[in-house]
Structure formats: C-alpha cells, structure tokens
Amino acid sequence: MLKRRNAKKITAFLLIWLALAPAAAARVIGIEDGAGSGFLFSHRGNCFLILPGHVHGNYRRGIRVGTQAGGAIGSADIVYQAPGEADISLALVKGGVTRDCGPAWADLPRSLSGALEIGRIAIIERARQRSAEGRRVVLHSIDFRQVRLVPAEGEKPDLFGGTSGATVFLDSTPIAMVLEAEAADAVWATRMDEIVNLLARFMGEVPPVQSCGEGVLSAACAESRAPVEGDPFEVLAWSVHPVEGASDPSAMVAGDAPYVAPLVPGEPIVLELALTGTDRLSRVRIVSEPSDDASVPKDIEVVTDISEGAVRRPNPMPRRDMSPQGVYDNRVGERFAKTVTIRISSSWGGGSPVRIDSIVIE
C-alpha cells in the first residue's frame, strides 16, 4: 500500500521490470506483486537503484530483484539513505539484471527549472503483478522539491497501492519519483533533480570536506613480501603514510592487516607495484572491508606499464569505481606489464581515511 502522509512506513521486497517510458534505457523497479517501485541507473561499472526508504523498510541486504515475469533476476543491498525526512534510499544491484541497468548517472537531470509546467501530461511507470504499466497524469502543481500529479482525462483514479516509488517521465526524461498518496486521484512526487542533489555527495559530485587527518606525506619505499593470492608482486612505493596503528601497503599485501590512510582532496593516494613472477596480467582486484572508522575508496585509476626505467609507457585500464560495498574488479584482455600504478582520488561519501584490505593481480 502506498505511503500516506503520517502513515506507517511499508516494508517489502522488490522486483525490477522494464519501464514503458520512451527511452529504452530507462529502467524502473517495483515491489513484489506491485506494492512499490524504484529507478535503476548505472555509474562507472556499478548498477544502482533509487527507491523510497519506506519501500524497503528494515530490509537492507539481499533484496530480491528481477525483471518482469521470466526475466533476469538479481539482488540489491541498501548502501545509502538520504538524511532527514527525504525518504530516499540508494541500493547497489547485483546479478543478471545489471546487464541492462538503465541510463547513466551523468544523464539524470540536475535542474528541471523551466521543464516542468503546470498542465503538462506526463507518464507514471509502475509495476502491476510483475509487469509494467503506464498511466497518463497531469502536473497539477509544482514547487522546488515536489510535484502534485492527478490522473489525465480518461485515466482511472487508481493511484493507490503499488504506485509508491514509481517514476514519472516527460518524454524520455525521468522527472520525479512518487512518494506520497493524497488520495487515489492525487499523489505527490519528489522531483528527480532534488533526488539527484540528495545523492550527489555520496556519488562523489560534491567535493569532500578537507580531511583533518595527517595529510599527504612524502613517498616512502620499503621491502615487500609476496602477496598471499594471485601473481606475486612487490610494493615499490606509496604516497601516503598509514594512520597510526595501521599497516603499510607492503604488510597489507602480505595479508597482515589493512592499509588505512588519510585522503586529502586533490591529492590521490598512489601505490606503485612491480610484478615479480610474470610479465603480463588481465585482472586487478582490490577489496576494502567496510568499517565504522574508515571509508571505502570510490574513484580508482589503474595504469600498467611495460617499462621499468625512466622512459615510461603507461597503458591505463578502463576507468571505473570501486563498489560502495568495497569490491573493485577490473578485467582486460591479457597485456604485458612490469609495473602497476594505483591511484585513489575519492571515497564513497567523501570520508577519510580510506581502507584497503587486499590487492590481487592475475
């Protein structure tokens, strides 16, 4: 049942279905048996889901997702909830459904000023019995945060259970997400530019606050032991000392303890590794175990090099983010390499210090 003002929040599992919006890339999610909805988007190798907080309730991990009946399935874990009374959550999606994960984060609207006009016809996309359906609605009233929607002429007044979290489209643009029901013939939807702004800091668009940690220190080199998994390598250098009590990167790759280091805006953490048992690679994996006192890295750049001398021949791997759950897995066609440089320039949520538990090269 759709959340009403001051009503008890709903708890439910989710199913994802393909939206009927004009843009083929637009994807919407819905709760089992049509109890609610949400919106899928992709960003730098990860698949995310925007949904109302009251839709998932106390459930945060292993939320079942899947396309309309007989389609791909997967699962979603809540990774962020917007502060205050926003009722907006963000989930990371895994499984077969990620093969078609909707529009890119960069394509979502940052400002809808001028695009929203009272009286315009829009489409609400929602799930009904494991399928997608659309309803034409009229933009009845608009403010800086939300829009009020009523059924268009000829449409049934059935904006009740199952509409919570549905996405509203103008042409191919997602403009709002339904959160509240005033009645079966009127709903309130939070504007998509407001939702994007609520999630922007977590997604890394807002520069993180200057860290009060130790700051960036000069590079330090140390003798390294072989890693405990994958092809052997040694750590040649790192740009930032670990925080007090943490291990340096050479001890981390040997499996002793995580490397935890302060991250200062504009000054990435740089690790330089040298392959010692092979001259080629096809995969780099990095793991960060989420913890209360350290953040998960976000923007990670990996560059391989076939040279070891002063003349460098850098060969960047495809740029992608670590997932908010702390997994970075970058696969390429086999390439020759003698050194690997890893640069960490941001964290999920903008926090510092960041943590690395393991690096595996294959």
Rank of each mutant, 00 (worst) to 15 (best):
P258K: 07
T276N: 03
S347D: 00
R64S: 14
L108S: 06
A226W: 08
G71I: 04
G96Q: 13
V79H: 00
I124K: 05
L159M: 14
G277E: 02
I63M: 13
S131D: 14
Y59V: 07
I342L: 04
R335L: 15
P227R: 08
M322Y: 04
H54M: 01
G215W: 12
S323N: 06
V332Y: 06
V55I: 09
H56S: 15
L108N: 06
H241L: 13
E301A: 15
P22Q: 09
R61F: 10
G215H: 05
V340I: 14
R331H: 11
F169L: 00
D279I: 13
W17Y: 13
W188I: 13
F336L: 15
G309I: 01
R44F: 06
E272V: 11
F202A: 02
I16H: 13
G45C: 04
L20D: 12
P103I: 03
G215V: 10
E301T: 15
V228N: 11
P262R: 01
A82H: 05
G70I: 07
A261K: 00
A294C: 03
S347T: 13
L112C: 04
G154Q: 13
P157E: 05
I78P: 05
W105Y: 10
G119P: 10
L236Q: 08
I286Q: 00
W17H: 15
L170N: 01
L217K: 14
D293F: 10
R145I: 07
L108M: 05
D231Q: 14
H241W: 11
G71Q: 10
N330A: 10
V138K: 13
L108W: 05
S111I: 01
V327M: 03
W17T: 14
E301R: 14
Q81G: 04
G30V: 05
A76P: 12
F202V: 02
I121Q: 15
V270I: 07
D100Q: 13
P103L: 05
L49F: 09
E155Y: 08
A82D: 01
L159G: 02
S323D: 06
S111K: 05
L198W: 06
M177I: 14
K298D: 09
V260M: 11
G351H: 08
I124C: 04
G255T: 02
I29Q: 08
R4E: 00
S288T: 02
A246E: 14
R5W: 07
E85V: 03
